[in-house]
């Protein structure tokens, strides 16, 4: 049980590159959040179009304007937004899965509990995210573009997974 706890508590932890984030970085999550709220009412399947909205606004408003550097800093803040969302959704789903497992005495239809199924998926997702974003970054041989590609990759995949879990809250 301890092992599962450790896995779930570090579910989304990732070592980010040390980014020089300017103190006056004008990141405001409102643009992304209002887009998400609107899509939840109208087009649940395409919420991923909202990912990056606030980061783009932030980069435009940064000192020196839109650049690889400002976009990297702003996208890191956007990553933080979706990482938090993923953690919130994961905790919700874990609770619902545990309730369901109690109702069926710890077993589900094919003897794997929903809690275990969730942990299996999340563990596989972490390996997939790490392998995919490392591979993407390598294509740019590090450098500033590589960092932007990396943080963009993390943000996209984290948002997708948060949406996946959010959808399953409704089905559990």
């Amino acid at each position: 049980m301890m092992r599962i706890w450790i896995i779930t508590s570090v579910a989304t932890m990732v070592l980010l590159p040390q980014l020089a984030v300017a103190q006056d970085m004008p990141y405001d999550p409102a643009a992304t959040q209002s887009c998400l709220a609107e899509m939840a009412d109208t087009d649940m399947e395409n919420t991923n179009v909202c990912v990056g909205r606030s980061a783009e606004q932030c980069a435009d408003a940064s000192v020196g304007g839109f650049s690889t550097r400002s976009m990297t800093a702003c996208m890191s803040a956007e990553y933080g937004l979706f990482d938090e969302m993923l953690n919130v959704e994961y905790a919700k789903v874990r609770g619902l899965a545990a309730d369901l497992d109690k109702q069926v005495n710890g077993t589900s239809f094919d003897d794997v509990s929903m809690g275990d199924r969730l942990v299996q998926m999340q563990r596989a997702w972490i390996a997939y995210r790490d392998a995919t974003c490392a591979y993407e970054r390598r294509q740019f041989d590090g450098g500033t573009i590589g960092e932007l590609v990396y943080i963009d990759c993390l943000t996209t995949l984290t948002a997708d997974q948060a949406f996946r879990l959010q959808n399953s809250v409704l089905g559990l």
Binding site: R117, Q120, M121, A124, W125, A127, Y128, D130, A131, T132, R164
Partner: peptide, 9 residues
């Protein structure tokens, strides 16, 4: 890693 993720997801 993607294949394992796809199957579990």
């Amino acid at each position: 890693a993607w294949i394992t993720f796809r199957d579990t997801a």
